[in-house]
């Protein structure tokens, strides 16, 4: 089932771009904090380019995507929330609450983007089943 292709509309790629930008929004300050300014700037530029191109390359109203790859990518993005969560929970008693709030915002943002993308994929799966006569 996961190897099948499902049809998603353009908003799926907007969401994917948003996910890349959001993850970059968390990674770039970390680069800057550790004095990796070049990598921070390069990451920001790459993320912005990726976000623009991933939308620009999919101009058609709907595109077929591989369900397995898409689901794995989304789960991978969720796995990336583990390190900030561990840092936030571990240092909850030592850090100011503003830092913890930022970490929570970052994690919740990733969850929201992944949920939005998952909803798009679910619509595609339902549509595919209807086309095959299995509502």
């Amino acid at each position: 089932m996961l190897q099948m292709k499902v049809r998603v509309n353009r908003s799926f790629f907007y969401i994917l771009s948003g996910l890349v930008l959001w993850i970059a929004a968390g990674a770039v300050p970390v680069f800057l904090v550790f004095d990796r300014v070049f990598y921070g700037v390069a990451s920001a530029l790459l993320a912005a380019t990726a976000a623009v191109l991933s939308v620009a390359r999919h101009r058609s109203p709907s595109t077929d995507v591989v369900l397995l790859t898409s689901v794995a990518l989304l789960i991978g993005a969720l796995v990336l929330t583990l390190p900030p969560l561990a840092l936030g929970v571990g240092l909850a008693g030592h850090w100011p609450f503003q830092y913890l709030a930022l970490i929570l915002l970052y994690v919740v943002g990733i969850f929201l983007f992944v949920a939005a993308a998952a909803i798009q994929l679910r619509r595609g799966v339902i549509q595919r089943r209807r086309e095959q006569g299995n509502p």
Binding site: L16, A51, V66, A77
Partner: peptide, 21 residues
């Protein structure tokens, strides 16, 4: 941070190549 950045760049690579589609 370096190791995590690799995965982050991988995600960007996928987005750049439009591989999901």
């Amino acid at each position: 941070l370096g190791e995590t950045a690799l995965s982050y760049f991988g995600l960007i690579g996928v987005a750049l190549a439009g591989c999901v589609g």
